[in-house]
């Protein structure tokens, strides 16, 4: 029974990682950059939800506020910090993204202080039993949201015109331009989608543990990012697989007493093992080098 409980918990936290990892992987695939600030967008969304909750008081309104704020923030960051560096050395873009992450974290602490805010209204108490197995409602909601998000995103990418354009831009930006695709607009859309997903992930995280501080997104961000690389950075199914895998491994590691304190080390070690065995990640394709 412990085994099944570990799997269910793993799927649930893995789903959250996967939703965050999607943001990393889409931005990487299309803008060819690691958006280090992605995890901190989650955190900023958390504060938007906090404000919305104290003004309006309804969780759904808070979610909407979080999504809107994250989309605006993500697009603004892309426009003002990353876009000027398009065509510059990848290292420069990476360092700017790191600076942005640092900036958001310190900004949040200055505005809201370091004492955590409790968003108890987001909590969903209660559980139900399957046999002797206890399943929290919050776990169930997370699983449902994960499935919905992944399905919707997959359909969007495969079937919609902007989705096709996103794939085209990620494969070959110049060729996409020659098709008449406004690549700048597609990159902005990608940031918008990624940031909206970050807000959703933030909501799921706060639903389970309502304590919000300026480092809310830091560790989940790094882990989800690891998950994206494990699954194959740039690959959307890869982010899903990587996220779920990381969540399940984490959950199992926590359930084994001897391993529990080293869970983070275990998680990051998977990354190194995967990169040694298959450098492009589980579902990733090796990028061809352009001369």
């Amino acid at each position: 029974m412990n085994f099944i409980a570990a799997i269910i918990n793993g799927l649930s936290s893995g789903g959250t990682y996967a939703i965050i990892a999607l943001g990393y992987t889409m931005v990487y695939g299309i803008a060819k950059m690691l958006n280090f600030a992605h995890g901190d967008i989650i955190m900023m969304g958390g504060y938007a939800m906090y404000i919305a909750l104290s003004l309006a008081g309804h969780p759904i309104l808070a979610l909407v506020a979080g999504i809107v704020f994250c989309v605006l923030l993500g697009v603004a960051i892309e426009r003002y910090a990353y876009k000027p560096l398009r065509g510059a050395a990848p290292l420069a873009v990476l360092i700017t993204a790191i600076g942005m992450s640092y900036l958001l974290q310190s900004l949040a602490q200055i505005i809201f202080g370091s004492a955590p805010k409790m968003l108890v209204k987001l909590q969903v108490p209660g559980f139900f039993m399957i046999g002797s197995l206890r399943v929290d409602y919050s776990t169930l909601i997370t699983l449902i949201v994960t499935v919905v998000v992944m399905t919707a995103l997959t359909v969007f990418i495969k079937k919609s015109k902007p989705g096709r354009a996103m794939v085209a831009v990620s494969e070959d930006r110049d060729a996409a331009l020659l098709m008449g695709i406004n690549t700048n607009a597609i990159i902005a859309i990608t940031f918008a989608i990624g940031s909206a997903l970050a807000a959703v992930a933030g909501y799921l995280m706060l639903m389970k543990a309502p304590s919000l501080s300026n480092t809310l997104g830091a560790m989940p961000g790094i882990k989800a990012f690891t998950a994206a690389v494990i699954g194959g950075i740039g690959s959307i199914p890869g982010a899903m697989v990587g996220g779920i895998l990381l969540g399940v491994v984490e959950s199992f590691s926590y359930s084994i007493p001897a391993l529990a304190p080293f869970t983070e080390a275990v998680e990051f070690s998977i990354l190194i093992v995967v990169l040694l065995v298959k450098p492009s990640g589980i579902l990733g394709k090796m990028r061809r080098e352009k001369v």
Partner: peptide, 17 residues
């Protein structure tokens, strides 16, 4: 410079983007 990861049909559709 065709889009290798998309179907032939999707490639053609992108031509009409």
């Amino acid at each position: 410079r065709i889009f290798q990861g998309l179907s032939v049909y999707d490639n053609l559709l992108l031509g009409a983007y």
